[in-house]
Structures are given as C-alpha cells and as structure tokens.
C-alpha cells in the first residue's frame, strides 16, 4: 500500500521556507551592522561575567582612590572596600575579579584604572589566594570575555555546531547589545543574597567594588592537594606587573587565608615562605604580614572565601594597617 501522498510540490515548500530563511539571512546581515547603532556589548548574563563587567566599568570610572585592591575572587569577597575606606580614612576601590583570570588580565585592568584617573593611587594591594598562585593557566573563556569587553567587542563562546550557527546568525549581538538590560537570576545562595546580576552589580558599586560569599564551608572544601608553589605562568606575569604602576605608587602584597582545618603543620610553615617568594617575584614594596595566613574554619564560606561576618573583621584588620601607614 502507498504510505503517503503530498498535497504540495517543491515549489510550494520553497515558498513556505524561503521567506523564513531569507529573513534569517537578512536579520543576520543587519545584526552585523549592530555595532554602528546599538549600545556597547555587555552580555553580563551570569555571575562571573557580571563581576568582570562591573570591575571593568569601575576601572574606567574616575574615582581617584588612594588605595586600589586588585586580585582574584578572594580579594573581591574577603575585603569590604567601603568599610576599609570609612575606617582608614582613605578612599579605597576594590578591583578584585575572579580566580579564572590571570595576572596579565589583572595588570590590564589596573592599567585601565590608572589611565582613567586624574592622579594615581598611592598604593596598590595585590591580594590572591594560594590556590591562585599554583594555577598553571587561566580559563580561556573568561580571559577572552574580559578582553573583548574591555575593547567593546562582542563575544560568543559557542563551541557546538548549533552554537556556531548561532554565531553566524548574530545571536550574540542580540544577547550583548539588545538584551543586556535583562537581569539574570543568580544561582543558589548567591541568588538568595543578591538576587540577580543587576542587583549584584548594584551592591558592588555601593561597596566600591566588593562583594560577599553567602555560602557555608562544606567538608569537601577541606580536601585537595596541600602542595603549594607559584606556577611558571604566574612567575612570568609577575615580572611585568610592577611596571604598570607609576613610580610613586607602592605595591603591597597579601595572601588570602586558608581554613585551619585544611592546613597541616608542614603547610603552616611553608605559607610565609610562599608569600615572601611571591612578593619577591613581584618586586613588591611591602608584604602585608599582619593579615593572618590561616583562620578558623567557621570564618570560611568556601576554601577561598570568608563568610560575610569574617569579611568584616578581616577588612577591619586591613583598615587598621592602612591607617597606620
């Protein structure tokens, strides 16, 4: 028995699909012209990208701070720049971002900041976590994203075949330029505390670039390798980092703390040496030694971040140190 009959021919089918395909091509072509008439790309649709975009914007804003904090996510989450400002009497800005970046990007961000100010800061504090120091390479996606954002370019990280089709269609231009106003919900505890990307960005602006980690330390956080060293990539980038700073600006180095439950006796004795080695490779002017290298587990939201409460005590310690300078 015959299985099918068709009421239409190929010409009719082309008449149905043709306008759709033609319009897709026409829209893709129009979108290619988007940079000419649409606002700058800002597809900050997740937490990492919202943080990177906020800090890049903050670096381009004239704040004329006395002290600039820069570093990985431990700098962002462990230090409250607004509190340090009020306690130390010195204007502090936090340009801490995420651990997936590298020293080269931190340097570019700092350079961007220096170029936007009337007068340079007197001090730059580089705060990183020991985990960051041993990381061999950064996340390519994160580095590419922030580099594109700094240049005002559109970015699309699609790696699958259909995502590639999306790229040719100009989907990333819609996301970054037409829908950049849309707040995106943050996940889990970050969602409960900050809500959406736009609310996190607002919070960070109010706190001079600082954020908080609302999570609770899990037992898995205390597992993992206890061997720490400075990776070759970090050593290489450290040499050029200091050259970004004007001659009158001092570079201060601090290491974020580790939970006591994670640190054994051997690591305890190695951490000050690691800090000194890092400071030497950066040719830093000062090592901030009064900030502890370990803290009680109860003070941690994760292995790398302090709780909001511990963030305040930790920030107060730094403020006291800065006041005395």
């Amino acid at each position: 028995m015959k299985s099918h009959s068709y009421e239409f021919d190929m010409r009719w089918l082309l008449g149905l699909l043709g306008p759709v395909l033609l319009l897709i091509v026409a829209s893709a072509c129009c979108l290619r012209l988007a940079p000419l008439f649409l606002p700058q790309a800002r597809d900050a649709w997740d937490m990492d990208r919202a943080i990177m975009a906020t800090q890049t914007d903050l670096a381009a804003t004239q704040s004329n701070a006395d002290i600039v904090l820069i570093g990985d996510s431990s700098c962002l989450m462990n230090l409250d720049a607004a509190l340090i400002s009020s306690l130390s009497g010195k204007k502090v800005v936090n340009l801490g971002t995420v651990s997936f970046l590298n020293m080269e990007v931190f340097g570019t961000l700092l350079k961007r900041y220096m170029e936007s100010q009337e007068h340079p800061p007197s001090k730059v504090i580089l705060m990183t976590h020991p985990d960051f120091l041993r990381r061999a390479s950064a996340s390519r996606m994160h580095v590419e994203w922030i580099e594109h954002y700094m240049k005002g370019l559109d970015y699309w990280s699609g790696s699958t075949s259909w995502k590639s089709v999306g790229r040719y269609m100009g989907v990333h231009l819609i996301q970054g330029r037409l829908l950049s106003w849309l707040p995106r919900p943050l996940k889990a505890e970050f969602g409960s505390l900050f809500g959406f990307t736009k609310d996190l960005e607002r919070y960070m602006k109010q706190h001079h670039g600082s954020a908080l980690d609302p999570r609770s330390l899990q037992s898995e956080d205390l597992k993992g390798s206890r061997e720490y060293r400075i990776s070759t990539a970090n050593m290489r980038h450290a040499e050029s980092f200091k050259s970004i700073l004007p001659v009158d600006t001092d570079l201060l180095v601090a290491l974020s703390p580790l939970p006591e439950g994670f640190v054994d006796a051997s690591l305890q004795s190695e951490l000050p040496e690691l800090r000194s080695q890092w400071s030497a490779s950066l040719k830093a002017d000062t090592i901030i030694q009064m900030l502890p290298l370990t803290m009680p587990d109860a003070d941690f939201a994760s292995k790398t971040h302090l709780t909001p409460k511990a963030n305040q005590t930790y920030s107060k310690r730094l403020a006291l140190f800065l006041k005395g300078l």
């Binding site: 008449g15 759709v20 319009l23 897709i24 829209s27 269609m169 989907v171 829908l179």
Partner: peptide, 22 residues
C-alpha cells in the same frame, strides 16, 4: 501575509537561539 508570518517565526527562532542550551 507571508512576510509577517515569516517575521514572527524568525523572531521566535532568534530568541530561541539566544537562550539555547546545547
């Protein structure tokens, strides 16, 4: 009209592509 119909479809296709998760 075919053009309006196609426009509606294309708008849906583009927005689906924006939020597409592989």
């Amino acid at each position: 009209r075919p053009l309006f119909k196609a426009s509606l479809m294309v708008a849906c296709i583009f927005l689906t592509a924006v939020f597409w998760n592989a």
